[in-house]
Design a protein around this nucleic acid. Structure first.
Length: 172
DNA sequence: TTAGTGATATCC
DNA sequence: GATATCACTAAA
């Protein structure tokens, strides 16, 4: 029996949540009742205003407001005009943190994942549990995790660019 | 390597 | 109102 992750799971520091989310399953129930499932194979952590790679580093705005809010909510962001990226808010309120879901086992790449799961901006700000149709499950899988520097944030400077806050399932 | 794409933030 | 920027992908 799969355990659905509740708010307590996300209500911790992003550096604890992000590696644990690897190997979990993200599920989405469509309006017609179909349930799409995908095991997460890669995440990245974004944490704090001092993290130059984090959207909240520029301060609290309408867009980043969600990052400061309650843990367990979804932050969906449109990148380059055509790609939806999915994040989950973690940690304490008023502390900007989030986990970027970068890839699934079958859908490698953050935009492919959201596309295949049919997730778009309409889910921005929704809770990541039951009611809105999106939730996370733990089926007991505990993959080996390896770390790597985050990608796509060359602008963030040497320190934040090279910090290893990317978590990847080490496939056997 | 480059084009394509549109919301957001920032600068008039 | 205008422009610069961007946590990407696909095609070449």
């Amino acid at each position: 029996m799969n355990r659905v992750l509740d708010a307590d799971f996300f209500h911790r520091d992003v550096l604890e949540v992000a590696p644990e989310l690897v190997g979990k399953i993200v599920a989405h129930r469509l309006s017609d009742g179909t349930v799409l499932r995908e095991r997460i194979s890669e995440t990245e952590a974004y944490r704090g205003e001092e993290d130059k790679g984090c959207h909240a580093s520029k301060g609290r705005t309408k867009r980043t407001e969600l990052l400061y809010g309650e843990s367990g909510f979804l932050y969906i962001y449109l990148c380059y005009g055509m790609h939806w990226l999915m994040n989950v808010i973690t940690g304490e309120k008023d502390q900007p943190q989030g986990v970027l879901i970068r890839a699934g086992e079958r859908f490698e790449g953050p935009a492919k994942l959201t596309k295949q799961l049919k997730i778009d901006g309409s889910f921005n700000g929704r809770p990541a549990c039951g009611e809105c149709g999106i939730w996370f499950e733990d089926d007991g899988c505990r993959p080996e995790i390896k770390t790597a520097p985050r990608v796509g944030i060359d602008y963030a400077g040497d320190y934040w660019k090279n910090i290893e806050w990317r978590f990847i399932a080490d496939r056997k």
